[in-house]
Design a protein around this nucleic acid. Structure first.
Lengths: 231, 231
DNA sequence: CTGACTTTGTGCGCGCGTTCACAAGCGCGT
DNA sequence: ACGCGCTTGTGAACGCGCGCACAAAGTCAG
């Protein structure tokens, strides 16, 4: 893409050449690989084969190799991948080495849980600020952070930032708009509602009840199949 | 996705249902349609066109029509869909009319948030029991439920059940195994680890930190593209 | 009853993602 | 040095899902 028309890319840049655009499906799996690699590193493993890493990540080994090939050729044939090196490459690809501030809006039950969730900090993504529209909650200490009022948003958002919405559904769109106005270009929405954002903003959503409903469907289908089998 | 544990029957079902197999991608969107329909019903709408419903759900109208066509022909050409009827049909398809008990294991920060999350009950999926391995938490009242000990699991799981794992990562696999032993065939995992289950068990996972890392990747890429543009 | 308008349902082409299968490459033992 | 075995990286086939565009089917006015 942008690197394709650079005449001498591989020699000049300290960073290995970006081969191509990484498919979205691959990006979604990189964090899983990263987690598995950290687990292997903690066990003292220095190298790992695609077969072993795929097993730890719960995916097909061919898929894993193709995913990693989109980042570059970081493996050694006959040996496997160097664990630490691969961790570094995936972390760099995900932008985890670069400082990236995260702003969480809404400190209800879910917001509190997210603020206290340890999985973020261990991957270089720590929540930097907590905001809430309810002034009675402002000043409260949660997970080492002080809750600030929503109106402080412009002061909190500095440079590259990710916004997390953990408010009730009816407040989500307004919060979303204010995040966008403040310059946030990536938003993670936990509120059970459809948000509309400008095209330059990345929006991901996690709906807890939807996952349960999908499981309910499968339970229902399994039950129907069982009844059909004995009929 | 994790289609590896989805059993596939080569032979047609003996049930003379004209309904075909609903694609997984469609199932994942049905809850979104259902939520949008409930919103329309609350506004007093009795019928809705595919265009309007697609807008409310945030999807393409052709996709919505194709999704609904997998359930049957419930629309009226020239008019649209009857809101209440469509709600009933989707609810039936998702198995929400059938009683389906949900067991939540782990009442830490996240477990508490899930227990108090209102989105479940409004869709016919209420959490019926809270379990925890920590005896100091047993007896605690959360969202109208009393926390019971993990050892009570066999008494709690009766009939069709869905298990939700909200424990730390290192306890998740053991909890998962105990759920499976107790007869649970659908599991929703919030712990940041890869779980292995028998092929007859449906497993879905939600990893909060993975979503953030995916957004981090896009931020990183946007920043890199901006730098490349001015170079 | 008829014709014009509206909206559903779907056939079809296309692009993405997954998987198989194998050639290329690397280390190691002899 | 040299072949042998192991593992990576990838070409190719396949299947799925998405979206366009249109025919089928219903409503409504006169």
């Amino acid at each position: 893409m942008d690197a394709s028309n650079l005449p001498e890319d591989a020699l000049a840049t300290p960073v290995p050449r970006r081969r191509e655009v990484v498919p979205e499906a691959t990006v979604a799996r990189l964090p899983i690989y990263l987690r598995a690699l950290h687990g292997l590193a903690d066990e003292g493993q220095t190298t790992v084969s695609s077969e072993a890493l795929a097993e730890a990540a719960g995916v097909n080994s061919a898929k894993l190799r193709k995913d990693l090939s989109h980042l570059g050729s970081y493996g050694t044939r006959g040996v496997g991948y160097d664990v630490d090196h691969l961790i570094a490459q995936i972390s760099r690809e995900l932008g985890l080495s670069r400082r990236c501030s995260v702003v969480l809006v809404g400190v209800g039950n879910l917001g509190r849980a997210l603020a206290g969730y340890g999985g973020f900090a261990s991957r270089g993504l720590a929540i930097d600020a907590l905001l809430d529209a309810d002034r009675s909650r402002v000043g409260e200490q949660i997970a080492g952070l002080t809750v600030r009022h929503m109106d402080d948003l412009p002061d909190v958002v500095t440079g590259v930032s990710i916004g997390v919405i953990a408010t009730p559904a009816d407040a989500a769109q307004e919060v979303c708009d204010r995040l966008v106005s403040a310059g946030v270009t990536s938003i993670l929405n936990f509120a059970p509602t459809v948000l509309s954002v400008p095209s330059h903003v990345d929006l991901r959503k996690v709906d807890l009840s939807i996952e349960l409903q999908i499981l309910s469907f499968h339970e229902h289908r399994k039950a129907a199949r069982a009844e059909g089998a004995l009929a």
